[in-house]
Write a protein that binds this DNA or RNA. Structure first.
Length: 423
RNA sequence: GGAGAGAUGGCAGAGCGGUUGAAUGCACCGGUCUUGAAAACCGGCGUACUGUGAGGUAUCGGGGGUUCGAAUCCCUCUCUCUCCA
């Protein structure tokens, strides 16, 4: 969430920045400034009354000690009017407070300077394309047909056990999942990320911390009995490790990675684009998360992008990188790079990774800060990215590495799979 | 699911209605001393909001109540621990 102080002091730049998302923040920002002013006025008044009451209480205490009961009683009668006033003001202040939070929750993050203005994916900027589209001397088939042909992923069986979007991986299909997870984790470790295995259910406070609540309430599986949520991404438990933390110095660079299953209700998603592995309710993902000094976050983002590039290259996949435009950038993100792999059989680009920089948008909710050299506290920057999510990578591997003999496993994966061909 | 215990500053741990934002110890930071370090001694040391500032306010798991006054009493919720099933 944006900080109220920032809205007070940089109103114009916030409004201008949000315009890039095609988001007109004028009304909300103006309301915020008005309500915030009222809040501060009431709060000051309230505090003055509290101060008076505190003084009176101390005086009464002293009088009682000295045995001056009558004087003490006289002083007591003075407090009742003040107390009434205090109670009224407190209600007022609480209401204004709640209003401010409600307004702040509605404001998305201000995009970074280099984010292009735009409404939809058509306005995204293609910043890099590596490799070229593979040509086939036979007709390539989509991954869901490959899965059936080699009996490696069974979608119908998943429907029987759970429902649509919960596939069953089998034989070499299951082994491939395990191999990819191990490969991604090993690569992340080589890049200096510390591996975690976090819980895959989280409490409400954690969901608020990373912004899943209140924005994406309906997208998570929720166990109402215990008020726990199934995580939509490892970003949630990993980032929340640092909720309510003040790092002791300016010298830090926290790099975490973790493999978890991810659960998404995907309410509203339907149609042919959700076919096969393209969109699932449960999938596996290795996530990378970083907590950085504000002066280092842009460099960290670059490193994360390089890391994902390296993974895709080792897997021999043809990909492109998009800098998302304002309208396509996620609510909490200031700058996002999407990685897409071309699927020859489906004749379209598939998003396989999304790497984002959040600036202080998450840390302000998380209360994740560091001590500056002059002993002040300042919010950290957070970043995260998929490195990588499995389903679409599996789809890309199956489709792009298919041959009449079977699907060829990339060299880098073979030591994890133990086989080099799916047939 | 049942029974009990508990939640206080970075940690440990006092306080159980009034000069308590909170003893004490440890940790940490600064200083004295020392060739340097250790020890010893002196001083400092939570967070947040608000105010140009002195300061003010809030905060002892969350919320509510009693009281002139609550870390301390009452209610309630949450969480943790121990034992039993």
């Amino acid at each position: 969430m944006l900080e109220i102080q920032r809205i007070r002091t940089e109103k114009e730049s916030v409004i201008a920045g949000l315009k890039k998302r095609n988001f007109d923040a004028t009304e909300i920002v103006e309301s915020l400034i008005t309500v915030d002013q009222q809040w501060r006025n009431s709060k000051t008044e309230l505090e003055n009354i509290s101060a008076e009451l505190n003084i009176l209480a101390k005086e009464i205490g002293n009088l009682m000690k000295q045995g001056k009961i009558e004087e003490a009683n006289a002083a007591k009668s003075k407090t009742s009017e003040l107390k009434e006033k205090e109670a009224g003001l407190k209600i007022n202040v609480d209401e204004l407070d709640a209003q401010i939070i409600q307004f702040l929750y509605q404001l998305p993050n201000v995009p970074n300077e280099i984010v292009p203005t735009g409404k939809s994916e058509e306005d995204n900027i293609n910043v890099l394309e590596v490799g070229r589209k593979r040509t086939f001397d036979f007709t390539p088939i989509p991954h869901w047909e490959i899965c059936k042909k080699f009996d490696i992923i069974d979608f119908e069986l998943g429907v029987k056990i759970t429902g649509a979007g919960f596939p069953v991986y089998k034989g070499k299909g299951a082994k491939l999942q395990r191999a990819l997870i191990a490969f991604f984790l090993d690569e992340a470790e080589k890049a200096g990320y510390t591996e975690y295995t976090p819980p895959i259910m989280v409490n409400e406070a954690s969901c608020y911390g990373t912004g899943q609540l209140p924005d994406k309430e309906g997208q998570m599986y929720h166990d109402k009995r215990d008020n726990l949520y199934l995580i939509p991404t490892a970003e949630v438990p990993l980032t929340n490790i640092y909720r309510d933390v003040i790092l002791p110095s300016e010298e830090f660079s926290i790099k975490m990675t973790g493999y978890t299953p991810c659960f998404r209700r995907e309410a509203g998603a339907y149609g042919s684009h959700v076919r096969g592995l393209n969109r699932l309710h449960q999938f596996d993902k290795v996530e990378i998360v970083r907590i950085e000094h504000p002066s280092n976050s842009e460099k960290a983002l670059e490193e994360m992008v390089d890391h994902v590039k390296n993974l895709l290259e080792k897997l021999g996949l043809h990909y492109r990188i998009l800098r998302l435009c304002g309208g396509d950038t996620g609510f909490a993100s200031a700058l996002t790079y999407d990685f897409e792999v071309y699927s020859a059989a489906q004749e379209k680009w598939l998003e396989v990774s999304s790497v984002s920089m959040f600036n202080t948008f998450q840390s302000s909710r998380l209360k994740l800060r560091f001590k500056t050299n002059d002993k002040k506290t300042q919010l950290c920057h957070t970043l995260n990215g998929s490195a990588l999510a499995l389903p679409r990578i599996v789809a890309s591997l199956l489709e792009n590495h298919q041959t009449p003999q079977g699907v060829v496993i990339p060299e880098a994966l073979r030591k994890f799979t133990g086989f080099d061909l799916i047939d």
